[in-house]
Design a protein around this nucleic acid. Structure first.
Length: 647
RNA sequence: GCUGGCGUAGCUCAGUCGGCAGAGCAGGUGAUUUGUAAUCACCAGGUCGUGGGUUCAAGUCCCACCGCCAGCUCCA
């Protein structure tokens, strides 16, 4: 017998191996109402109503609106899709790979003999799935001995399932299969009680190649992706988000607003900054430099290439070579384009002997690095081959570690907030199995990272063993306006380079000591961060970052002299301003300024000329009224200085 | 790199069965002189990604390459 404490129902004793389904029957037998249960959470594990419970514990029933039950639904929809495929294209012809859930839905990797699935097939499959849902097949679970399961799937010609049983399912694990009508699948579960419990609020959205088990040498299966939610409303919301993401695509906006281009004549993953994009970048970089100087960083510059020996010492030649541009020969000497800035910063540190008194030394650089990325992964500014790290290396004593890490994290969070990001995900990655450095250093460093996060008051997840071999790290992700997470800041200890380069400082004891070294970046990559900013703001950047902050719109050509006068005054006040001198109607000029996402439109006509004013229209609020030129300048200057998000 | 899709004017795209390369926007010229999201007319603009092939005839069909997009993979 086992004891189960059921949330809201109390504690019960049951036979070992009872299922939720049977528990519900028992409860209902006692006259209790238990409705709509699609699964349960047993001791933090999501299980379905079919799975035998073999241990005592706490159980909570799941109904559709529970977050955890989505996984059950999505898993079942993957099966329903597989069943649909088999019914459409023939049981023997469809070979199933794996069909797990994803963040928003599910996929199934399949092979259909003699047929290449295309997007046009998706609606047909969807229809079939809806039919199966309507049929309301009860879903049953069964555990089989290994040999029997092998036999079954061999008979069904499910070669991939056989492969899974042979090579991937641990000897000790039970082998379970799920049946719904005539469809049988190898599966760990969990699943909903019957296909009829699935709503039709799902959508198949793409079809793509995927290697069996993700290995390039294996055959490629076709992966069909679906999204699924319990309600139509949630599905719609998600689909709208996708639409919105498409509208915000920084590649599209970057082209429309003439911010940057990636030109095939130059090469994939190599961005060219057009004048307007360069303004954004310049603002960000100037701000970055000022903030770093304020915080005691010292700015440095380093070259784009360095001798092979340097990269030997750093270990990059041995461990990072596949990501580097190939070696070049100059006067019998090998050189590499830099994939990272660290070796140079280390050399700067080593340029003379260092005393404990001058630590911490914080060297900062907007260093442009080049990495070989496979052509297929390049993506606008988000994934490039040449990018600028907002890099800094903090070299300090052990007694300074905690304080320095806290300052870095505070700095990063404060900066990201300034750019309009207020939600973060923080990850602490700890020591992996293969690593360098002694236990003590790992402990001091990991502790400092943890304390920093806690002192800043952030929630965080621990990625146990997820650190680099050379040290633990913190990663910060930001949430954008439509809920997507982007990796930005990173704070990484490095126990490797100080050893390799034999970095030291002279301590109070007149002895050599190994310093702690930390790599850190706030934005990660300037290119990528600007890409994220563009998508976050849908191109409507904060005033201080806008390439053109105000557009002067003369109503007719007659007002041009006054418009130029206003323009001159604004320019002298440091506001980026343009006058629309075209012989177009005012409405057209406003429309074009709106499309260019210019924050302020200053309409000037007879009235304004006579009174020395401008009629201010903002991108957000439309016409906000008439201001004197000085009033407008004061307001705009103040907002720019404050980096305000307001207009 | 792999799988699939797509490459037509500066941009967004149409082009049927293989039969004279199109539209809108942008650009140029002219008219108009305008009060809060598109004034009108005219003009110019093309090696249909590149190279080969099939055909009387190729933007269209076939092959190779290049590039882009989605996904896979990768992301010390």
């Amino acid at each position: 017998m086992i004891k189960i404490n059921i949330d809201r129902f109390g504690e019960f004793e049951f036979e070992d191996g009872i299922t939720i389904k049977e528990i519900i029957q028992a409860l209902e037998g006692e006259g209790k109402k238990v409705k709509n249960v699609v699964g349960g959470v047993l001791n933090d594990e999501i299980i379905d109503i079919h799975t035998p419970i073999k241990q005592s514990g706490n159980l909570r029933f799941l109904i559709p609106k529970d977050k955890e039950s989505l996984e059950i639904l999505r898993h079942s929809l993957a099966h329903i899709m597989a069943q649909a495929l088999k019914e459409l294209y023939g049981t023997d012809k469809v070979h199933l790979g794996i069909g797990p859930t994803t963040d928003v839905g599910f996929f199934y990797d399949v092979e259909v003999e003699g047929k290449r699935l295309t997007e046009e097939d998706l609606p047909v499959i969807e229809e079939k799935m809806k039919e199966i849902i309507k049929r309301d097949c009860p879903i049953e679970r069964q555990e089989l001995p290994r040999e029997e399961a092998l036999q079954l799937f061999e008979n069904m010609k499910e070669i991939y399932k056989v492969d899974l049983i042979r090579h991937d399912i641990p000897e000790t694990a039970p082998i379970s299969i799920y049946k719904q009508c005539d469809f049988v699948d190898l599966c760990r579960g969990p699943h909903i009680p019957s296909t009829g419990k699935a709503p039709t609020s799902f959508k198949l959205f793409s079809i793509a190649g995927a290697y069996w088990k993700g290995k390039e040498t294996n055959p490629m299966l076709q992966r069909i992706y679906g999204v699924a939610f319990w309600t139509e409303k949630e599905l719609k919301k998600y689909l709208n988000m996708l639409e919105e993401a498409k509208k915000r695509d920084h590649r599209k906006i970057g082209k429309e607003l003439e911010l940057f281009i990636i030109d095939e004549n130059v090469g994939g993953g190599l961005a060219l900054w057009l004048p307007k994009g360069a303004i954004i970048r310049n603002e960000i970089e100037n701000d970055w430099r000022n903030e770093h100087i304020k915080r005691g960083y010292q700015l440095v510059y380093t070259p784009h290439v360095g001798k092979e020996q340097l990269w030997q010492t750093s270990g990059h030649v041995n461990f990072y070579r596949e990501n580097m541009f190939p070696e070049m020969q100059i006067e019998e000497e090998g050189y590499f384009v830099k994939p990272m800035n660290c070796p140079f910063h280390v050399e700067i540190y080593k340029s003379r002997q260092r005393s404990y008194k001058e630590l911490p030394i914080k060297l900062a650089e907007l260093g442009t690095v080049y990495r070989y990325e496979r052509s297929g992964v390049l993506h606008g500014l988000m994934r490039v081959r040449g990018f600028t790290q907002d890099d800094a290396h903090i070299i300090c004593r052990e007694d300074q570690v905690e304080d320095e890490i806290r300052k870095v994290l505070e700095f990063a969070i404060e900066t990201l907030k300034n750019y309009g990001f207020n939600e973060f995900e923080v990850y602490l990655s700890t020591r992996p199995e293969k690593s360098v450095g002694d236990d003590r250093m790992w402990e001091v460093a990991t502790d400092a990272l943890r304390k920093a996060i806690e002192s800043v008051g952030l929630e965080y997840d621990i990625d146990e063993g997820g650190g680099a071999f050379y040290g633990p790290k913190i990663d910060v992700k930001i949430k954008d306006a439509i809920g997507r997470m982007w990796q930005c800041s990173t704070i990484q200890f490095d126990f490797n380079l100080p050893e390799r380069f034999d970095m030291y400082y002279i301590g109070e004891d007149n002895q050599r000591h190994r310093p702690y070294m930390v790599h850190r970046a706030v934005f990660g990559s300037i290119e990528r961060f600007i890409g994220v900013l563009i998508e976050h703001y849908a191109g409507q950047l904060p005033l201080w970052l806008s390439p053109v902050q105000a557009k002067i719109i003369p109503i007719a050509d007659a007002h041009l002299p006054y418009a130029k006068e206003v323009e001159q005054k604004l320019r002298e006040a440091g506001i980026r301003v343009e006058t629309d001198e075209r012989n177009e109607r005012m409405n057209k000029k406003i429309r074009d300024a709106e499309l260019q996402k210019i924050p302020y439109m200053l309409v000037v006509g007879d009235k304004e000329w006579q009174t020395g004013t401008v009629s201010v229209r903002t991108k957000k609020k439309g016409n906000v009224g008439v201001f004197t030129i000085d009033e407008f300048i004061d307001r705009a200057k103040k907002l720019i200085k404050e980096k305000s998000l307001e207009l």
